[in-house]
C-alpha cells in the first residue's frame, strides 16, 4: 500500500533553523553563517574583527569543527564569548547543533554572532542554521575557479571575502577571471579583499560587519 507523504526530508532542520531565527530576532542579534574550505582563514578573519570591534560591537562566536577546541581557544583569547561545536566527523553544522550552541552564549548581551561553519564548500550550503546573512570566504591559494566549481555557495552569499591577497604575487590566481565567475553567478555581488597577514582590507571587513549588525534583525 502506497502512502503519499510529500514531506521535506530536512523538515526537522528547517523547523529548528526557524526556531533559531526567532530567538536571534527576539534578542536583536544578527547572525552570520561563514562558510569556506578548510584553511581559507575564517578564524583569522574573526580574530581580526574581534580585535577591531572590541568595545564597539558585542560579538559572540560559534565555532564548528569535526574535532578539537583549537579554534574556540583562539577566539576566547580575544575576550569574545565563544562556543565550540564538535561535529565528530560531520561535514557541516546543522540547526540543532547551532541551537545548542546559542544556549551557551549570552544572547541578550550580544549584537552579532558569527557562526564559523565546518570547512567545506558543498555540504554547509544545504543546511539552514537560522542565520541572517551568509558569507563565503575563499583564499587565493585555492585558485580563481572556485566560484564556477561551487556555484551554489557563491550565488547564495551576501558577501564574498577573498583572503590571503598578500600571496597574489606568488600565485597564478587570475583575479579578472575570479571576478568574471562571480559576476556570472550574481551581477550584484559584494567582494572584500583581505590579508590577515598584512592587515589589508581588514577595515572594510569589520566595517561590513558593523553595518550588517546595525540593521535591525528582521526575519
Amino acid at each position: 500500500m502506497k502512502f503519499n507523504v510529500v514531506q521535506k526530508v530536512m523538515k526537522v532542520n528547517d523547523e529548528l533553523a526557524a526556531h533559531n531565527r526567532t530567538r536571534l530576532v527576539e534578542a536583536d542579534v544578527i547572525a552570520i553563517n561563514m562558510m569556506s574550505a578548510p584553511g581559507s582563514g575564517k578564524t583569522s578573519l574573526i580574530e581580526a574583527a574581534a580585535e577591531r570591534l572590541k568595545g564597539r560591537l558585542a560579538l559572540g562566536v560559534v565555532e564548528g569543527d569535526p574535532e578539537t577546541t583549537l579554534d574556540a581557544e583562539r577566539i576566547s583569547r580575544c575576550d569574545v564569548p565563544v562556543v565550540q561545536v564538535q561535529t565528530a566527523g560531520g561535514c557541516h553544522l546543522e540547526a540543532n547543533l547551532v541551537g545548542q550552541a546559542l544556549d551557551h552564549l549570552p544572547l541578550q548581551e550580544l549584537e552579532l554572532v558569527i557562526i564559523e561553519n565546518v570547512g567545506n564548500l558543498v555540504c554547509p550550503v544545504e543546511f539552514d542554521l537560522g542565520e541572517t546573512v551568509r558569507v563565503a570566504v575563499v583564499s587565493t591559494p585555492e585558485g580563481h575557479d572556485k566560484p564556477a566549481k561551487y556555484p551554489k555557495l557563491f550565488r547564495k552569499a551576501d558577501l564574498i571575502v577573498l583572503n590571503k591577497i598578500d600571496l597574489l604575487p606568488y600565485l597564478e590566481f587570475d583575479i579578472a577571471r575570479f571576478l568574471d565567475y562571480l559576476g556570472r553567478l550574481n551581477p550584484e555581488f559584494t567582494l572584500i579583499q583581505t590579508s590577515c597577514a598584512t592587515g589589508e582590507g581588514i577595515a572594510q571587513w569589520t566595517d561590513w560587519l558593523w553595518d550588517t549588525a546595525s540593521v535591525p534583525a528582521i526575519p
Partner: peptide
Amino acid sequence: LKGSLQAGDELVLETVE
C-alpha cells in the same frame, strides 16, 4: 544573469510503500 530558482532544489520524501 539573475534569476530565482523555481524548481530543482527539492529533497522530498514523496511516497512510502
